[in-house]
């Protein structure tokens, strides 16, 4: 059972959280976006082994945030509230 730090609620059990994808995955708008860009946004993932920057949502309070953590050791490095559009 991992403990994740919700920036709003503090440390909580992993079961209260939901993974939301890579941080900084900006959405290209428009019907004419090149399909490669759209596919990049929609499907391709960096999926790093090691340090990852990810969007998470704390389902208990509903807030989305960015968490940096190590996908091998499961050490949590930081967690910050979602800064604005796309949380680059």
């Amino acid at each position: 059972m991992q403990l994740f730090p919700c920036p709003f609620c503090g440390p909580r059990d992993e079961t209260e959280f939901h993974y939301g994808g890579d941080a900084g995955n900006a959405r290209p708008d428009g019907a004419e976006v090149p399909i490669e860009s759209w596919t990049n946004y929609l499907y391709l993932r960096s999926n790093p082994k090691g340090t990852a920057r990810e969007i998470w949502v704390h389902m208990s309070c509903g807030e989305f945030f960015v968490m940096e953590r190590d996908t091998v050791t499961h050490k949590v490095l930081s967690s910050t509230a979602l800064g604005g559009e796309h949380a680059a």
């Binding site: 939901h18 939301g20 969007i55 949502v57 389902m59 509903g62 989305f64 979602l82 796309h86």
Partner: peptide
């Protein structure tokens, strides 16, 4: 649906 609305609210609209 609720989660989806929240996601777009926080990630896109503010």
């Amino acid at each position: 649906v609720h989660a989806r609305l929240e996601e777009w609210r926080q990630d896109r609209f503010g």
